[in-house]
Simulated assay, not measured.
Amino acid sequence: MSELSQLKFPAIYSQLAKDFIDTITEGSAINFSIAKGLELLNIPVNILQDPDARLDGDQICLLLTLGHMLAKKDTPFSLQIVQHFKEDTLGMLGLAIINADDAEQALMLFQKYTELFIPGFDFSMNYSDRYLDIEILPLANFKKIEASFIELIFCAFDFYAKRSGLDTQAEYFFCHDATGYETQLERQFQCLVHSLSPINKIRIPRSALAQKVKNPNSSMQTFYIAQLDIEKTKYEQQSNIAFQARRIMHHQAKQGRFLNRDQLADLLSCSHRTLTRKLKSEGISFQGLLDEVRFSMAKQMLYQSSKSTKQIANHVGISNSTVFCRAFKKWSGKTPSDYRASINDS
């Protein structure tokens, strides 16, 4: 996985932190200001005035840790943060979503541009006859703040759906244990919440995708998308090679295509040798990336299907099931059958 420090987050996170801290400390005995907080975290105070500024992942981690320290203890931290969400909390993406034509278009915008505002995660759409599962896979090592990030992503999804006038009838599945405050989350989301799921995901009925947005504005949406395309190009040029490679390999694998080194280098517009050198400089190898992708897909299939070990091995690009079982145990510490049994018992 990518290191958290390699990710770049927009300055809107520090503005959100400012709004949260101002509210928490207003009328209290706590003598604290966002300027003091940013100084303690070694973040330039003028970052709030710079729309192009980016915070690295370590700074975001410190901001979230500070927020947890100051937050009220009787309400989930994520639900305290969501009270400060605005239509532009996700910048141009948020504005494009609420000006979309329908739920499906809004969702496609979220998937296409969300890495600009929520880097370090892959959002994959898995359709069945009745449902759409939006699966959220961390591509970086978020450590102790991963649970907070997942909850904030779910809060953002819920916020923009409601602001768009949509009733998505969603269900939320958390990998972490939220049993102590599931009732509060369900009250906020007005739907079911599940803890300790093997995969973080949002489930909505496929029929919900046809819902119309309350007040669409196609001309404004065209403007926002044009700006997002510019930002996306700039972001991709500045992203580290391992993170770009990881995202490409995950997307290709979902389509049944497992890239070799040369194919990945072509998609990244560099030579085989340059790719190897850059990955090594970031502490990872091509084989390491390929193993990550295979492990992630194998876990999902063991959870979501009753396919045999041999079928799953073939699906993740390993023709010999014995080799696959040996590799899976190396990745997880369990055989595929033991892993599936542990999921069914949870």
Rank of each mutant, 00 (worst) to 15 (best):
L196F: 07
D102W: 00
S218I: 13
S207P: 00
G120D: 04
K201V: 01
I97Q: 14
Q169P: 00
D133L: 03
H176C: 12
F189S: 12
Y160V: 00
L152C: 00
F121V: 08
F123C: 10
F142H: 07
P198K: 12
L95I: 07
N200M: 11
F174K: 05
F154A: 01
Y131C: 05
Y131I: 12
Y172G: 06
S128I: 05
I134C: 09
A178S: 15
S128F: 12
N215F: 09
E171Y: 07
Y224M: 15
E182Y: 04
A170L: 01
M220R: 10
L107W: 10
R206H: 07
I204R: 05
Q221P: 10
Y181I: 13
A156K: 05
L132T: 09
Q111L: 02
Y224A: 02
Q184N: 14
S195E: 14
R187T: 14
N215L: 09
L139I: 03
L95T: 05
K162L: 04
Q188S: 15
T183Q: 15
Y160R: 03
N217G: 03
A170E: 09
D101P: 05
Y181N: 14
E182M: 07
A140Y: 07
I98L: 02
K112M: 04
L209N: 04
N141F: 08
F110V: 10
N200V: 01
I204L: 14
F149D: 01
S148P: 00
Y131M: 10
S195M: 14
D129Q: 13
S164T: 01
L107H: 05
N217A: 02
D102N: 15
Q190G: 05
F142Y: 07
L116Y: 09
N126P: 02
S195A: 15
Y224S: 08
D129T: 13
F121S: 03
M220W: 09
E171K: 12
L132N: 09
I118N: 06
E115G: 03
L137R: 08
R163K: 15
D133A: 14
T114Y: 08
Q184T: 15
C175A: 04
N141V: 12
L196G: 03
F110I: 08
F142K: 00
P138N: 05
F159V: 06
A103V: 02
E135Q: 11
A178R: 14
D122H: 13
F174V: 05
I225R: 15
Y127F: 14
S124K: 12
F154M: 15
Q211E: 14
I97G: 06
I153L: 06
D129K: 12
Y113Q: 07
L132E: 04
Q184D: 15
S218F: 12
S218K: 14
I136G: 00
K214P: 11
I199D: 11
C155K: 02
C175D: 06
A210W: 03
P119T: 02
R163N: 12
D102K: 06
E186P: 05
K212H: 08
N215K: 13
S218T: 11
N141W: 03
S197I: 13
N126R: 06
C175M: 15
R203M: 07
D177Y: 05
L107T: 11
A178M: 03
N126W: 01
C191R: 09
R163C: 07
R206S: 07
Q169I: 00
N126H: 13
D177Q: 11
